[in-house]
């Protein structure tokens, strides 16, 4: 469904992603793991059209989308939950969700998405008239995921949903992602919480200093010496 080939990207003169390739198949839940500054967010932003790739190709359903503007990428069915969430803080929860469905013309479809998001995160339904800027960290994260879902994406990119959340809330968000994946949504998830992520995903890539150093099934990675050493803190 998504195929990234030899992607180079960076800011100014600084290259932070060095020729990475990765692939996400229909219905898969795939993780992109790696330490701070590895280039995970940059990769997601390239796919979502927020950062322009320098080289390489990004193909979505067989069509090249590299360098396409973010709003057009969204229109093709790719939803992004960014690291900083990028919520509309001066709008209510309801308005934020409505904006998520900005490019969905059918009112009926929007209503169904809204019901779905509210059933996934009942908390948001309670907070419907509240300004997004006054939500708690956990609620914000739910709202960002909800907003991305409102567009009815076929591929969801999620950047570090566990960031700044207590373990219990992290688990809640992970459960929601797992449920979405079980319902057939294709998800590419960026995470640093390696243990919990590897328990949940089908496959994963490990990105270090802009290069993919490991890839494989979740099980294969949990057993890898490198992952154990560096990410799981287990002495081999």
């Amino acid at each position: 469904m998504l195929r990234v080939t030899e992607l180079d990207a960076g800011y100014g003169f600084l290259r932070v992603v060095h020729g990475i390739s990765l692939q996400v198949n229909q219905g898969e839940l795939v993780a992109l793991l790696g330490p701070n500054g590895a280039g995970k967010s940059t990769t997601l932003k390239c796919i979502a059209g927020l950062v322009r790739p320098w080289k390489g190709d990004i193909a979505f359903r067989g069509h090249s989308i590299g360098g396409l503007r973010g709003d057009l990428v969204n229109g093709l069915g790719i939803g992004l939950v960014s690291e900083s969430l990028n919520l509309f803080t001066g709008m209510t929860v309801y308005e934020n969700l409505l904006m998520g469905a900005y490019s969905v013309p059918e009112a009926e479809k929007r209503r169904r998405s809204l019901d779905f998001v509210f059933s996934l995160f009942p908390r948001l339904a309670e907070r419907r008239p509240q300004l997004a800027g006054t939500l708690s960290g956990g609620e914000r994260k739910m709202l960002a995921i909800g907003r991305a879902l409102m567009g009815g994406p076929s591929l969801l990119l999620v950047d570090e949903p566990s960031l700044g959340l207590a373990p219990k809330l992290t688990q809640q968000v992970f459960d929601a992602l797992r449920k979405l994946s079980d319902d057939g949504l294709t998800i590419l998830l960026v995470e640093q919480n390696v243990t919990a992520t590897l328990e949940m995903v089908d496959r994963a890539y490990v990105l270090e200093q802009g290069e993919i150093v490991l890839e494989g099934s979740a099980q294969k990675l949990s057993e890898s010496e490198h992952v154990k050493d560096v990410y799981l803190g287990v002495m081999a």
Partner: peptide
């Protein structure tokens, strides 16, 4: 208003 509040956010919702 979305553009004035969060530009990348506005791009992200299309």
């Amino acid at each position: 208003r979305a553009v004035s509040q969060d530009e990348p956010g506005a791009l992200m919702v299309g």
